[in-house]
Write a protein that binds this DNA or RNA. Sequence first.
DNA 1: GATGAATGAGGGTTCATTCAT
DNA 2: GATGAATGAACCCTCATTCAT
Lengths: 173, 173, 173, 173
Amino acid sequence: MRADARRNRELIVTTAIGLFTEAGPGVSMEEIARAADLGVGTLYRHFPDRQALLEAIALEALDRLRTLIRTAVAQDVPRWQALGRVVEHCVEQPLALIKSLSPATPADPRRGDLEREVNDLIEQLLEQAREEGTLRPDIPPREVLGLLNVAICRPGARADDHLITVILDGLRR
Amino acid sequence: MRADARRNRELIVTTAIGLFTEAGPGVSMEEIARAADLGVGTLYRHFPDRQALLEAIALEALDRLRTLIRTAVAQDVPRWQALGRVVEHCVEQPLALIKSLSPATPADPRRGDLEREVNDLIEQLLEQAREEGTLRPDIPPREVLGLLNVAICRPGARADDHLITVILDGLRR
Amino acid sequence: MRADARRNRELIVTTAIGLFTEAGPGVSMEEIARAADLGVGTLYRHFPDRQALLEAIALEALDRLRTLIRTAVAQDVPRWQALGRVVEHCVEQPLALIKSLSPATPADPRRGDLEREVNDLIEQLLEQAREEGTLRPDIPPREVLGLLNVAICRPGARADDHLITVILDGLRR
Amino acid sequence: MRADARRNRELIVTTAIGLFTEAGPGVSMEEIARAADLGVGTLYRHFPDRQALLEAIALEALDRLRTLIRTAVAQDVPRWQALGRVVEHCVEQPLALIKSLSPATPADPRRGDLEREVNDLIEQLLEQAREEGTLRPDIPPREVLGLLNVAICRPGARADDHLITVILDGLRR
DNA sequence: GATGAATGAGGGTTCATTCAT
DNA sequence: GATGAATGAACCCTCATTCAT
């Protein structure tokens, strides 16, 4: 792939993430193209249709998420603190997009893989936190994930958000 | 306003709430009209544009919410329990619509009034709960409202939801 | 169906037939709408998509064709003469459209029926002509149909066309 | 012109003829380029626009046609038989393209020349056939050409086609 | 000279909204 | 007052054509 093409591809994804974050999922392809200072045709050369662009955004977000969790899991700190860091970093990412934009059934197989991997990493962390005795045991890991998701993937979420404080406190044994 | 006109108006709002709840915010005016067994023209006679219908839905939801909170506030039970009941009842209402559909700036002045009234009622309840010593004091009432909002106004929320449990636990002193 | 709607529906079909006849199958929906002095939306209210309009045109053409053949078949004249009349009348119809526009597989079941009926009528006429001894017997009826089709359904066909004379002469015993 | 450039030019024309024959006139420039294993840019270097490519295809077809007729005319056989051979060979060529693709007004002057030359050759042959007494005299040569064109330039034409038999029989005195 | 990325006008289609019946 | 037909701006997408690499 040519250098300028790669640059444009990334420019499109970045621009699209920005617009979706600002203006919601109703943003048109035309607007994305204009914001990236490109023609619509260029968008469609990189992503055969709107769905494909959303898919790419989801992949990008999941990839960032994975890196983030891996780092946290690998740190030599109490698990509860590691969990806190994951959450903190998450809200700085445009993860809201994963939920709001991506379709239920991943067309790209890589997405399924990434989702599974991210889930596994998180569940591993949660399991460790439970063994450590800091996470309340009466809520299944899969649900904890959902809770954090809600806290994080919501317009206007910020790391010092009270909702996040409250949820973390509520999750503590 | 004639009796049948009022009936049609209510039919439209109810039908629209149903459709939006089932099928998300993308439902078209035509679909709403068809589901209510009316012509689009009739719909537009009652609501000059789509915005106005959404506004009406928000008003309806806020009105139900007000009734609900008033009842809870008036009951002779510990404040924490009253708060729990408000939350429980809320999730049984299609309140998700208030957030997802209504625009930031209320066009109808009655909506501003209702929102203020609902807020006041809730804050009053929260204040009492704090005095009672059951609500943690480090989070301002306005924010508590926001938290509950998130917990409640989210696709798939149910009264026995873990997120709600966790948030309520997290809010407890 | 309201009177004005029916009128518009017919106007659209007529206009479309005219444009397709003049300018070939590349005519856009926009152009058809403009030529009929209507908005595109109106086209799409009457015909859910381009295919449906083409289908309707094919139906219209087949219907005219059927009437025409029935009349000829019923006349008390030698079969060869009846056949000549069918051909003459055909070229005055926009039948070229049936071939050039309609898709291979008829979506509307009525179209299949009409096609079968028209074919049966023609084959009946051909059979009679053969018994009469005027039609050469070495070409199967189905093919005769094809031949006439080619002669008729071709841009610029006219009743006094030499191609038609030649084909009819060539078909004569 | 360099040898490889000439080769590419011919490759493009051949590929395009193949694709148009298989898939109709809707084939895109991109598809043609890909099928020829070239970039679109290369295609456009040889043909400034789509029209020019079609023109080149027409020229190619006319050229093949000329050779073919010349051979037939030069043969020492009855003129009627020579005519039959021309027709037979024609249907083995992708001549359908000449009609369906090429515009009414030839942009390239060479095309006008070729067309005139081909016409002259055919008319000469027809004139001889008429003198020989095998061709019916009541149809002007120019029209005979048209008739044969229709018979030949039609999707699915084959040498042993009944339409061709019928037309030849119809043309015989 | 070859390549394929970028461009943008144009095509099919939808849907909020207006207006004749 | 109810109805649903008409309207046209806006959306997604394609493809002939241009131009940077």
